[in-house]
Amino acid sequence: MKISHEEIQKIALLSRLHIPDEKLAETEKALSDILTYVEQLEELDLTDVQPMAHAVPLYNVYREDKVVPSLDHELALSNAPEEDNGYFKVPRVVQE
């Protein structure tokens, strides 16, 4: 299955990946090859097969509604790239 230039760019945008122009052709080929390989599955007759919701045949795993202690505040923030007054500080995000 061939994947288009535009699709590569859209996927890159959605995944927040920067693909330099000189790498576009290479990425296009790699992704197309993977899709072609997976495409073989389409030969199977799946008329009476239910879509699989989970790989493990396990259902209904719950926990009771009980509060347990949260992380220590310092520890919670220890992975933050930047911290400000107990907050995770992130670059400005504007949707435009």
Binding site: R63, V67, P69, S70, H73, A76, L77, G86, F88
Partner: peptide
């Protein structure tokens, strides 16, 4: 009382990032 997928409290108004 607790969150949907973990045991942190759902209480409103705690100090920032203390119910995580």
């Amino acid at each position: 009382k607790s969150k949907i997928f973990c045991g942190c409290t759902t209480e409103f108004g705690g100090d920032q990032n203390t119910h995580v």
